[in-house]
């Protein structure tokens, strides 16, 4: 278990890896990777047990996941440089055939949550104690398939399914609240039968606590699937990327990347 302070230091380092990896690739999605890296770090480094599974439904944020996997020793640091390059296991969006630890192949919005539900259902049939975690996006929540799963997971009483919504309010064409508003998002999920937690998405104490609460709900015989709404900042950690829609899906130049890395190392 890492302390919040240790996690703050680790995610500083992982943010620089994300920037470096995307810069080396020459393309990718810095904004949404930086908004979810704190959540992914707590989840993988602190919360997940060996047989738990994680599905990154918002597949474009995969540089954040590659960074965490590398930190855990599941990917060599050197390999991060192969992101998006020919013959790499690190495809631009998750490919579970090339890299099984990814759990599913995603990148087409709205799909990964259904897959996570299927794994959770499989665990339930076999009476396995393991959990399934799934990260979805707020832009992604505009997909109809998300709401098909929002409807079905409570029916199957999947308390072993914990979904985190990376609510960074950004998508390619603008702010989620302008493009196609999803609020009031907690009310929606609650009314579908989920146990909903609403937390600031870069506060390590709160993230740790939310996962602890989710685990307790399951272990105490809860029957509802769990949604953690994490209020995040797109591009978090790099001042000139924060809440800037243009940083959704472009790579920084080497010079801009250097500035970003300097800033991360200085401030965190």
């Amino acid at each position: 278990m890492y302390t919040p302070q240790e996690l703050r230091n680790i995610t500083k380092e992982l943010r620089t890896w994300i920037i470096e990896m995307i810069t080396e690739a020459g393309s990718g999605h810095p904004g949404g990777s930086l908004s979810c890296i704190d959540i992914l770090s707590v989840l993988w480094l602190n919360e997940m047990k060996e047989k738990d599974r994680f599905i990154l439904s918002k597949g474009h944020a995969v540089p954040a996941l590659y960074a965490v996997l590398s930190k855990m020793g599941l990917l060599a640091k050197e390999e991060l440089k192969t992101l998006r390059k020919i013959n790499s296991r690190l495809q631009g969006h998750p490919d579970r055939v090339r890299l099984p630890v990814l759990g599913a192949s995603t990148g087409s919005m709205g799909q990964g949550l259904s897959v996570a539900q299927g794994i959770a259902l499989g665990f339930k049939i076999d009476k396995k104690p393991d959990s399934v975690f799934c990260l979805i996006g707020d832009g992604e929540s505009q997909e109809g398939q998300i709401w098909e799963t929002a409807l079905s997971a409570p029916k199957f009483k999947l308390s072993n399914l914990c979904v985190i919504l990376d609510n960074n309010n950004g998508q390619i064409d603008g702010y989620v609240s302008d493009v196609m508003p999803i609020e009031p998002i907690t009310d929606k999920w609650r009314s579908f039968g989920w146990h909903v937690l609403d937390i600031p998405g870069h506060d390590f104490e709160k993230i740790i606590k939310a996962f602890q609460d989710a685990r307790q709900l399951k272990e105490n015989g809860g029957t509802k699937p769990i949604l953690i709404v994490a209020r995040t900042i797109k591009g978090k950690g790099v001042s000139f990327m924060e809440n800037q829609i243009d940083w959704h899906g472009i790579a920084p130049t080497k010079e801009v990347a250097r500035k970003a890395v300097e800033e991360i190392e200085k401030n965190g």
């Binding site: 599974r53 579970r96 759990g103 599913a104 799909q111 990964g112 949550l113 259904s114 897959v115 996570a116 539900q117 299927g118 794994i119 959770a120 259902l121 499989g122 665990f123 076999d126 398939q145 799963t149 079905s152």
Partner: peptide, 10 residues
Amino acid sequence: GTAAGLAFAG
């Protein structure tokens, strides 16, 4: 998608 997940669970 759910069927794919069930397959991944064996």
